[in-house]
Design a protein around this nucleic acid. Sequence first.
RNA 1: UGCCUCGUGGUGUAAUGGUAGCACCGCAGAUUCUGAUUCUGCUUGUUGGGGUUCGAGUCCCUGCGAGGCAACCA
Length: 587
Amino acid sequence: MSESDTSRHFLRQWIEKDVADGRTGGTVVTRFPPEPNGYIHIGHAKAVCVDFGMAELFGGECHLRLDDTNPTKESDEYAENIKKDIRWLGFRWSGAGDGTEPGFYNASNMFDTMYAIAENLIKAGQAYCCNLTQEEWKEYRGVPEKPGRPSPSRDTTPERNLQIFREMRDGKYADGEWCLRAKIDMASPNIHFRDPVLYRIRHVAHYHLGDKWCIYPMYDFAHPIEDALEGVTHSMCTLEFEVHRPLYDWVVDRLDEMGLLVVRGGVKIRPQQREFARLNITSTVMSKRLLLQLVTEGHVAGWDDPRMPTVCGMRRRGYTPGAIREFCARVGVSKVESESDPALLEWCVREELNQTAPRRMAVLDPVRVVIDNWGAEDSPNAVRTSNLNPARAVKTVELPNNPLDESAGTRQIPFGGEIWIDRADFMEVPEKKFFRMAPGQEVRLRGACIFKCTGCVKDETGRVVEIHGTWDPDSWGGNAADGRKVKGTIHWVDCATGVKAEVRLYDRLFTEKNPLKDGPSEFLKYLNPDSLQTVSAYVEPALAAAEPLARFQFERTGYFVADERDSRPGAPVFNRTVTLKDSYRPS
RNA sequence: UGCCUCGUGGUGUAAUGGUAGCACCGCAGAUUCUGAUUCUGCUUGUUGGGGUUCGAGUCCCUGCGAGGCAACCA
């Protein structure tokens, strides 16, 4: 059972009470309302889990609504990828929808209604057109500590306002020349009540509606209308909207007066907004603006760069939808602004992949090992000779695909007496507690045999280029005939049949836990120069056929995924999702 | 110095007036043909001060600290 099934956080209790009090008309309706101006990231994933999760928990519905009220930053590319990523995370929107597909809405499809509501407000004397420049308005509005003063247009007649508003709609004015404001309270301690802008002029084509409109509603006006008219009961958003809530309620009140609230099961549905803390993770940035900057300035390879905290980046990195959901459940929902440890995310993905990922052997930093006493006379079951050294016979090692899951079966791997091992698994002068390969020391070659190193060959710089040793012919399969214990087991790849593969080793994108500690303009200086290291590895033959997005555990190394874009059967490319935990501490 | 919100181990989160618990991280040990996994154990916490109460992390007052709000962004 996931944490999300048991955590009774404040939003859940809030909804429980409304259900008990009969305020939902029989159906809890939530919504996830992203603006299609970027790719969604792990922070959005938390909101997705909350919005869809609460609807699911109460047997209700969750709408996917693209909040496309500002055409200047939005695009179809973003819209389509948002839908793709939410589906990949495992969520399905439901509800009536606004015409294209069930459960799916564009805020822009409601522009006609919003416009009509705005005219109603004008007629009721609750909104007026204002032609103050932004600079002038800033001065009129005042500061939080002091009341503002009214716009000179504040008492224009409804008739005249209606005329101007229609002229705005008809394109008679330039951007910024006029706007529509609600008439509320210029002295309110809440800035958002000081005659907030409802509509502004933008002579910009909308990605969804084209040139139909040149005036666009503001978030504070549009959002409560969208919620109310979709029959949303519980509108959950992030903390910074807390001060907007009175305005949200003000708009809902107006809709109520106009008789526009949805009635369901005999109950008038008044949408309510509540706020929870957004997700932060240390050593990364989560703001769309900064992520966009990383992309446009080329610090990463794109929105789906595996170092990015975007959903598509994490997919390419090898994260699973389940691990992301589990992480979101485990960080919980509260109003406390907090910073989660990426170690928890890593734990979640290891937890899942440990159960599900097939084991393979891959040598990321290869050095050749020659077994000097290996030969045909030692291997009566030899099936063919080694490519590299025709004199050498080949045996077959059988290993389980997943020791934790017998149903995963086994695989066979050729072993020809010349193998690659990882450089880190050899020490010419071993420190104490080094259980791997070292002269005079026995080590087990995973699944194959016990090997005793006799020495190594070095080049003129002192670098080890080849290791020699002998195997114990009575240990085939890995255990000594006399029962003696071997502490260390290392992985290997057969030289003759191993496949060359590009492997990308990813690390944290930033070296600093808080990359924004010196302000958002300074975060680039904390980019981790070693966040990507590309190596040429040898992998066991079975890995050659890996399909893109296939996930594996490279034994003793980590979890890896065949790259979504660049990996092809026959020419595999792997991304490191996360390392295995490693309790070895060099002395 | 206006309004709003939030303070529980290193991190995240429970305890809804009644034994401060869980998870991650970290540290030990056991097991192990992955120094993984698994298992066991351990360290570390209620922002300060008052008050109400038989009893306060929880309610009240007051300090302190953190964050949000002054886009024709969302």
